[in-house]
Simulated scan of single mutants.
Amino acid sequence: MAAPTASVFAKTPKEDFRVTIDIGVDVTHPMPVTSTIFPASTVVEELRALRDRVEVAEAERATLHATVRLMGEVETSLCNRMRDERQTRIGIAR
C-alpha cells in the first residue's frame, strides 16, 4: 500500500518554504463481529434470565400500585371519620 503524502507549508520572517513529508500508515482490521458469536444456548439463557427479571419487576410494580391505592383508601376513610367526629363534637357543643 502506498503511503499518502502531505504537504506542509510554513512561513518564517526570512522566507517561505515548502516541505513534503511522507507519512506511513499501518492499517489494522478489527475482528469482524460475526467471528465472536455466542453459543445459542448462552443467548437463550440470558433472554430467559431477563424475562424472569422483567416478570419480577412487573409483580413488584403491581404490588406497590395496590399498596398505594389501599393507602389512599385508608386515608380517605380516616379523613371522613375525622370529619364526622368533628361535626359530632360541634353538634354536642351547641
Rank of each mutant, 00 (worst) to 15 (best):
Leu70Asp: 09
Ser35Thr: 11
Arg53Asp: 00
Glu46Gln: 13
Ala62His: 04
Pro39His: 11
Asp52Val: 01
Ala10Trp: 06
Ile23Trp: 05
Glu60Phe: 04
Ile23Leu: 15
Glu75Asn: 10
Ala62Pro: 04
Val25Leu: 11
Pro13Cys: 03
Pro39Leu: 05
Arg18Phe: 11
Glu58Thr: 02
Ile37Lys: 13
Phe17Met: 08
Thr34Ala: 11
Thr42Gln: 07
Gly72Pro: 02
Leu78Cys: 05
Gly72Gln: 07
Glu15Lys: 07
Thr12Lys: 07
Glu60Asp: 14
Glu45Pro: 00
Glu55Asp: 12
Thr63Tyr: 00
Ala49Met: 09
Thr34Phe: 04
Gly24Met: 10
Arg69Ser: 10
Ser77Gly: 12
Glu60Tyr: 04
Lys14Ala: 07
Ser77Pro: 01
Thr36Arg: 09
Glu55Ala: 13
Arg48Tyr: 00
Thr20Lys: 13
Ala59Cys: 04
Leu64Ala: 10
Val25His: 02
Ala40Thr: 01
Val74Gly: 01
Glu60Cys: 03
Val19Asn: 04
Asp52Ile: 02
Leu47Asn: 00
Asp26Pro: 02
Asp52Leu: 03
Glu45Thr: 01
Arg48Trp: 00
Ala10His: 03
Glu15Phe: 05
Leu50Lys: 08
Phe38Gln: 08
Asp52Trp: 01
Leu70Met: 07
Val27Pro: 06
Arg51Asp: 07
Glu58Val: 02
Arg51Val: 00
Pro32Cys: 03
Arg18Cys: 08
Val43Gly: 01
Asp52Gln: 06
Thr67Ile: 12
Met71Pro: 01
Thr76Ile: 08
Arg18Leu: 12
Glu45Asp: 11
Ala40Met: 01
Val19Asp: 02
Met31Ala: 14
His29Glu: 15
Arg18Gly: 09
Asp22Trp: 10
Leu50His: 04
Thr42Leu: 09
Pro30Thr: 04
Glu15Val: 05
Met71Gly: 05
Arg18Ser: 13
Glu58His: 08
Glu60Lys: 09
Arg51Leu: 03
Lys14Gly: 02
Leu50Phe: 05
Met71Phe: 07
Val74Glu: 14
Asp26Gln: 12
Ile23Arg: 14
Pro13Val: 08
His65Ser: 15
Thr42Arg: 06
His65Arg: 15
Thr67Tyr: 04
Pro30Glu: 04
Ala57Met: 10
Lys14Tyr: 08
Arg69Met: 10
Leu47Gly: 00
His29Ala: 13
Gly24Trp: 05
Lys14His: 05
Gly72Tyr: 02
Val25Lys: 02
Met31Asn: 12
Glu60Arg: 10
Val74Gln: 13
Leu50Gln: 12
Ala49Pro: 02
Thr28His: 11
Pro32His: 06
Cys79Lys: 14
Phe38Trp: 08
Asp26Cys: 06
Cys79Gly: 12
Val27Ala: 15
His29Leu: 15
